[in-house]
Simulated assay, not measured.
Amino acid sequence: MRVAIAGAGAVGRSIAGELLENGHEVLLVDKAPTAISVERVPQAEWLLADACEITSLDEAALQRCNVVIAATGDDKVNLVVSLLAKTEYGVPRVVARVNNPKNEWLFNESWGVDVAVSTPRLMSALVEEAVSVGDLVRLLRFSHGDANLVELTLPADSSVAGTQISEISWPEDTSLVTIIRGNRVLTPHGEETLEPGDELLFVAAQAREEQLEELLQARH
């Protein structure tokens, strides 16, 4: 997979390092000469250019990329890069960094964003996930289909504790992705029985989140 990353700061370089370790091709693009630190990620391709300029993206051969990551520290730049990647070059997957949570509402398919990653929101979500039992925690928002990755730790008195997955009537547009039970990561199947303390990860439409939370909460 070929990935172009706009923004060669600490975030962009860290992402590049992870992707390279996983065997992907990576191109780092930044307009600041001081950001071009080839020695820090020597396996990556580097391009000194403005990722908001069509000529620069032509030089980067963005049409050859499977994924574009807009990872600069400027939300306006990330939106422009996302829009150009999707509309001008037809990049299949566009991931954008959200620096200011107040701008998160802009990072959707209208701007070419498939996945928006807000570091402040993600950190707060991880804190909530660590301390919340019985409350639905939104971990990640997907632009397409208005779906979110959400998590809930099953309380001891949940109405579905001790119930097989096949016997539960899940809300529409909701899919149980995985179950984390202690140190184990379980693939959900119909005969699996949910246990108190299970961390359940779902992909769910935003409109179904309240219904899902009600289903999993304590018995009344």
Rank of each mutant, 00 (worst) to 15 (best):
W105N: 11
D135A: 11
P171C: 08
E151G: 04
D157I: 00
V80G: 06
R93L: 15
V67P: 05
D146C: 02
V127A: 14
L152N: 01
V80F: 06
A130G: 14
E129D: 13
D74N: 15
L106W: 14
E172F: 00
L149W: 02
S169R: 13
W46C: 09
Q164P: 01
F107E: 07
G112H: 10
V115Q: 09
V115W: 08
K102M: 12
V68I: 13
S56P: 06
Q164G: 11
R93S: 14
H144T: 14
F142H: 14
V68S: 02
A70L: 08
L149F: 14
E129K: 12
T87V: 06
D135V: 10
L79I: 09
E172Y: 07
S82A: 15
T153N: 01
D74W: 02
P42I: 04
A125W: 07
P42T: 02
A130M: 09
L176S: 05
L84G: 02
L47S: 04
S159K: 12
A70M: 12
L149S: 08
T55S: 13
V113G: 09
F107C: 06
A51W: 05
E129H: 12
S158P: 10
V68L: 14
E151R: 15
G145V: 09
G134R: 09
R138I: 13
C65S: 12
K102F: 11
A161T: 01
D74L: 13
R141H: 13
S118Q: 05
A61M: 12
A51E: 09
L154F: 00
A71V: 02
V80A: 13
V137Y: 05
N66W: 04
S143N: 11
S143F: 02
V131T: 14
L136C: 06
D135W: 01
E88D: 10
P33E: 12
V81H: 03
A96T: 05
I180Q: 13
C52N: 09
N108P: 07
I165R: 04
D58N: 10
